[in-house]
Design a protein around this nucleic acid. Sequence first.
DNA 1: TCCGGCATCATCCGATCGGCTATCCGGGGT
DNA 2: ACCCCGGATAGCCGATCGGATGATGCCGGA
Lengths: 211, 211
Amino acid sequence: MAEQRIRVVLVDDHPVVRAGVRALVDAQDDLDVVGEAADSTQAVVVVGETKPDVVLMDLSLGEGPGGAETTRLLRELPEPPQVLVLTTYDTEADVLEAVDAGASGYLLKDAPPEELFRAIRGTARGETVLAPSVATRLLQRAASPTPKVSPREVEILRLLAKGLGNKEMARELLVSEATVKSHLSHIYTKLGVDTRAGAVATAIERRILRP
Amino acid sequence: MAEQRIRVVLVDDHPVVRAGVRALVDAQDDLDVVGEAADSTQAVVVVGETKPDVVLMDLSLGEGPGGAETTRLLRELPEPPQVLVLTTYDTEADVLEAVDAGASGYLLKDAPPEELFRAIRGTARGETVLAPSVATRLLQRAASPTPKVSPREVEILRLLAKGLGNKEMARELLVSEATVKSHLSHIYTKLGVDTRAGAVATAIERRILRP
DNA sequence: TCCGGCATCATCCGATCGGCTATCCGGGGT
DNA sequence: ACCCCGGATAGCCGATCGGATGATGCCGGA
């Protein structure tokens, strides 16, 4: 077959996870880990130097730009690698953001090693690989699209979670109370709720707010 | 020195993490990984068979009993191992629960390998090892103890997050609206908030509610 | 160019909330 | 025996919320 071995770069801020993936992947004789990075900056450098076929990308990279943003950067390089997201959560917001950034696969960290290997090989061939749970989620959301919450509305949600009243939010955002109430109404509609408490819970569940 | 090598068992539902920790730990010549488990049941069996000195315990084990509960089980064995929690989050609720269950250390997965090794060795000697961020958090909370939320109040919080009004909660719980309001007031006091939205956010942050 | 989404503001009004005070009961600990 | 806490209940009242309705300006895509 004389197939070229697949060159892989790992991007993850957890040393433990990098070691684990490296151990597993390097044990496969058609896969080579040619580099590691713990953050966005390193990732760009390492990928630029090593020209891998596939990048395994964690979405939460601690400080600095996250995995989605980093994916975007990598895909804008002269010879962009395929990016396979390998992360802990399968929130639909995360998935959409990653796919939008140019990722061509999405796996969860609790996937069995075999699935990981298949995913890497598939991604290298240009296929799109989704974890079953992720695929399910995507189909769900495709059927009933989640309306996007605007930046201003996120701002309102943030203050809402801090327990501020409309008047206080208005002061904080330098707008009138009427505007705040208007935003709130839109938020309720978009999130399918009709109370502040429900909005906060849904926003956190949908990862619009981080706890 | 002729020191006995330290026997370690890994409990984590992520194959990748197990492989990573194993690769790192096994490379140390005074540390031996003598077993792995992906869930609570396996953990008890493996620990019973291998009698390790230290168990590295993940707190979220997917299905079934979690890491805290598993820690409790292991500590009740005839020859209980030291348990070192190695997990992703440092929520004070998680920490307290783990410590209460008998864990003698708490590390985060993004810790550098060297710190992990030191922690394992320290734990084997019976020392208590806390990640810096965890220690900080504990001191904070020790100074201002979090009042416990009663079961009934948790119930109220659950309904609150669903966006129910007082009247609806009352119907749901088969009590009067006055009772609901009373519970709410107590909740506000205990959580240090004064609105429903704030209560929900704080409850989720404190892991009283799961999103 | 026109439409739609975003952000802004205004008014009205009934429903709900949050704070306060007070009572009652049962169980667990001092 | 006594007291504290969790749970349940009541009434009062001012402040706030949420819904409905309508309007303006800006920008970007069809």
